[in-house]
């Protein structure tokens, strides 16, 4: 058991609770409708159209979260702009950050 500042965390308790919840869900599922014959539910009804092949409907990585990236397109455009892939820019970012650290850490002592 891990003591934290606000309470505790016990993975064992969590696992027991998870197993109990799983068993309850499984029992409820087992009590559901049993009248359908095997195989009867396999074919979905799509307005009379044939079901497309699995290959045709598998969403590829490039399309997942399209809405998210499109909504944040301004942010992503900026991010793409600064991720140039050019080593000169990497060095500039490093020097720029060193300058910021200098302003924050060294300069106040020099001025005062």
């Amino acid at each position: 058991m891990l003591e934290t500042t606000g309470g505790y965390w016990s993975p064992i308790v969590w696992i027991v609770a998870f197993i109990v919840a799983f068993l309850m869900a499984y029992i409820m599922w087992g009590m559901g409708e049993k009248k359908h014959a095997k195989g009867e539910q396999e074919k979905p009804f799509l307005s009379g159209q044939d079901e497309p092949s699995k290959e045709a409907v598998h969403v590829r990585a490039g399309n997942i979260y399209w809405g998210f990236t499109e909504t944040l397109s301004g942010y992503y455009d900026f991010m793409k702009k600064i991720h140039t892939g050019i080593i000169n820019d990497y060095v500039l970012w490093f020097l720029g950050m060193a300058a910021i650290f200098f302003l924050a850490i060294v300069l106040p002592g020099v001025i005062m």
């Binding site: 490093f94 950050m97 060193a98 650290f101 200098f102 060294v106 020099v110």
Partner: peptide, 17 residues
Amino acid sequence: TTLDKIALVLLIAAFAM
């Protein structure tokens, strides 16, 4: 000292990178 602070800036920047 000021030199210690400059050294700290360089060390933080280098290791953070």
